[in-house]
């Protein structure tokens, strides 16, 4: 040791020196940069197809909040590498992110982002604003740009309850960052085009959360119908999508029983009408 001699009297560790910013990532970057996901590494060859990728996430606002749902499939090329992956993560009491793209990098980003939000909250004694949270995530995605170019692309979706408008807000990103605020509904991942098309017809403004959950499960079903990388409900193994709703009461992940019942409703409807609910023509 002996390095503490360079520090202000009595300080044995850089942990006690104030770096002037309440960001966890910035602090780790100066204190122990090796702990952060590699930013300057280069891969010998792009790994795009060989590592597991997470796929479709859908989100839509509801009365007084927002609902987010994600399918459970991860794929490496044509292989299904995991059937029960979770891609929607609670990041604090009023926000969550869903990840699409390289699963490993995405999970790590979600974990780091959760610490980032909590760290700020504890250091400052206040919660970041919703826009502050969204911007912070953009910076983290941009930090991953080098790896994204090598095939480790992560594009999350951020959803939060905003007490100022007493409603939900959704933010999208691209590999370079963002954020791009999205209104009403949004989807990311390989099945997102089909999911968005489905939501376009099923979304109702200010619908109660229960109905929005149904619309999202339908959207995921449609995505799985047309996109091989998106998993549909696994009836035999009872693996249902992850569904989370965020309202003034905070983040609530629906239990398997709750989601299972909704999935059952959707499946029964599809038995007679395989393409799902039909929106009125006029």
């Amino acid at each position: 040791m002996g390095s503490h001699r360079d520090l202000p009297a009595g300080m044995v560790n850089h942990i006690f020196t104030n770096s002037g910013i309440s960001s966890f990532t910035e602090f780790v970057g100066s204190y122990a940069p090796d702990l952060l996901p590699g930013r300057n590494e280069t891969l010998a060859a792009p790994v795009g197809d060989r590592i597991p990728h997470a796929t479709t996430i859908v989100a839509a606002t509801c009365a007084g909040g927002v609902v987010v749902a994600g399918d459970r499939r991860a794929t490496s090329g044509n292989i299904i590498s995991q059937r029960d992956m979770e891609k929607v993560f609670r990041t604090d009491d009023y926000s969550c992110i869903g990840i699409a793209g390289a699963a490993s990098t995405g999970i790590e980003m979600a974990r780091l982002y959760r610490v980032e939000l909590e760290h700020y909250e504890k250091m400052e004694g206040r919660t970041l604003s919703v826009v502050g949270k969204a911007n912070r995530l953009a910076t983290m995605i941009r930090g991953n740009l080098g790896m994204a170019m090598q095939g480790l692309v992560v594009v999350p979706l951020f959803a939060a309850y905003d007490p100022d408008i007493d409603g939900g807000r959704i933010f999208g990103y691209d590999v370079g960052g963002g954020p791009y605020e999205q209104y009403h509904y949004y989807s990311i991942g390989s099945g997102s085009l089909f999911a968005r098309g489905s939501l376009k017809k099923l979304y109702r403004e200010d619908a109660p959360p229960e109905e929005v959950v149904l619309a999202l499960i339908n959207a995921l079903y449609d995505a799985a119908d047309d996109d091989s990388a998106t998993g549909g409900p696994d009836v035999t193994r009872k693996i249902w999508p992850v569904v989370a709703q965020i309202t003034a009461d905070g983040f609530h992940r629906l239990s398997d029983e709750e989601v299972g019942a909704r999935v059952q409703t959707v499946l029964e409807g599809r038995m007679s009408s395989p393409d799902g609910p039909i929106a009125p023509l006029r």
């Binding site: 560790n13 942990i15 006690f16 104030n18 966890f24 702990l35 610490v115 760290h119 504890k122």
Partner: peptide, 17 residues
Amino acid sequence: EALRLGGIRYADINGYN
């Protein structure tokens, strides 16, 4: 307060790692 902030850094860095 300096100790509190250091403690939060310690906890977050270990919990993350």
